[in-house]
Amino acid sequence: DETGKFLVLALYDYQEKSPREVTAKKGDILTLLNSTNKDWWKVEVNGRQGFVPAAYVKFL
């Protein structure tokens, strides 16, 4: 159920650099879980949760 969740689009490829991050490919649609940090947003992609740089994604 996606009610109340926001989707964001990956603008660039991002390769995770730590276990707390997730890899995303340009064009991926990610479920935004938390955007309270202006630099790192928590997302879910391909069943995995983790952080990506906020500058790499935008709201749909």
Rank of each mutant, 00 (worst) to 15 (best):
Q15T: 14
D28P: 03
V8G: 05
S18C: 12
F6T: 14
Y12I: 09
Q49G: 03
A55R: 13
L32N: 00
F51E: 02
G47Q: 03
V52R: 00
T31G: 04
Q49W: 07
D39C: 14
S35Y: 10
N46E: 08
G47C: 11
R20C: 15
V52I: 15
P53L: 09
L11Q: 03
E21N: 03
L33Q: 01
V43H: 00
A10C: 15
G4H: 13
Y14F: 08
G50F: 05
S18K: 05
E16H: 07
V45Q: 06
D28L: 07
E2Y: 14
W40G: 01
K17M: 11
K38G: 08
I29C: 09
L9G: 01
G47K: 04
Y14N: 01
K17E: 07
R20Q: 12
L7K: 11
N37G: 09
F51D: 02
G27P: 03
E44H: 03
R48E: 05
L7S: 07
K26W: 07
L11V: 09
K17Q: 14
F51N: 01
D39K: 13
K58T: 15
K58A: 14
E44S: 08
W40V: 01
N34P: 02
W41L: 07
P19R: 09
I29W: 06
E44A: 07
V45K: 08
V57F: 11
E2T: 13
E2P: 13
Y14L: 03
P19L: 08
L7M: 10
T23W: 06
L60S: 05
V43C: 08
Q15W: 13
G50I: 07
N37F: 07
R48C: 10
D28Q: 13
I29Q: 03
T36R: 09
V43F: 03
W41P: 00
T31P: 04
G4M: 12
K17A: 10
T31W: 11
V8F: 07
A24R: 02
E16P: 15
K25P: 02
L60T: 05
G50E: 02
L32V: 13
K5N: 10
P53G: 06
R48W: 07
K42F: 15
D1R: 06
K17S: 09
D13Y: 08
N37Q: 08
T36E: 13
L30H: 01
K25T: 07
N34Y: 07
A10N: 01
K58C: 15
A10L: 15
G47V: 05
V45M: 08
V52K: 02
L9K: 06
T3M: 12
D13A: 06
G27S: 03
D1G: 14
K5G: 10
D1M: 13
Y14P: 02
A24P: 02
G4N: 12
R20H: 14
A54R: 11
K26Q: 10
T23E: 02
R20V: 11
T36K: 11
A10G: 02
A55H: 11
V8I: 07
K5T: 11
L30M: 15
W41D: 00
K38E: 10
E21Y: 07
P19M: 08
F59G: 06
T36I: 08
T31M: 11
D28T: 06
E2H: 13
L30Q: 01
E44Y: 06
S35E: 05
P19C: 14
T23Q: 03
K38L: 08
L9E: 11
E2A: 14
G50A: 03
K17I: 05
L11C: 13
G47L: 06
T36N: 11
V43Y: 02
E21S: 06
E2K: 14
Y56A: 14
R20N: 14
Q49E: 11
L9T: 08
K5P: 13
G27N: 04
L32A: 01
K26P: 06
G4A: 12
K38Y: 06
D28F: 08
K38A: 11
K5D: 08
A24Q: 09
Y56Q: 04
K5S: 11
E44Q: 07
Y14W: 11
Y12N: 06
K17D: 05
N34G: 07
K17C: 13
L30W: 04
V22C: 10
F51W: 13
S35N: 12
D13P: 05
L11I: 11
F59L: 15
N34I: 08
A24L: 15
K5A: 11
W40P: 00
W41R: 00
D39E: 11
K26L: 08
D39G: 08
D1Y: 13
A55V: 10
T23D: 03
E44R: 05
K25D: 03
I29E: 01
V43L: 02
L11H: 02
V52Y: 10
L32R: 00
F59R: 10
E2R: 13
V22N: 03
K42G: 03
F6K: 12
S18I: 04
V8K: 00
D39A: 10
T3I: 12
E44L: 06
T3F: 13
V22K: 02
D1E: 13
T3D: 12
W40N: 00
L11K: 04
E2D: 13
N34M: 07
Y56G: 06
T31Y: 11
L7G: 03
L9F: 10
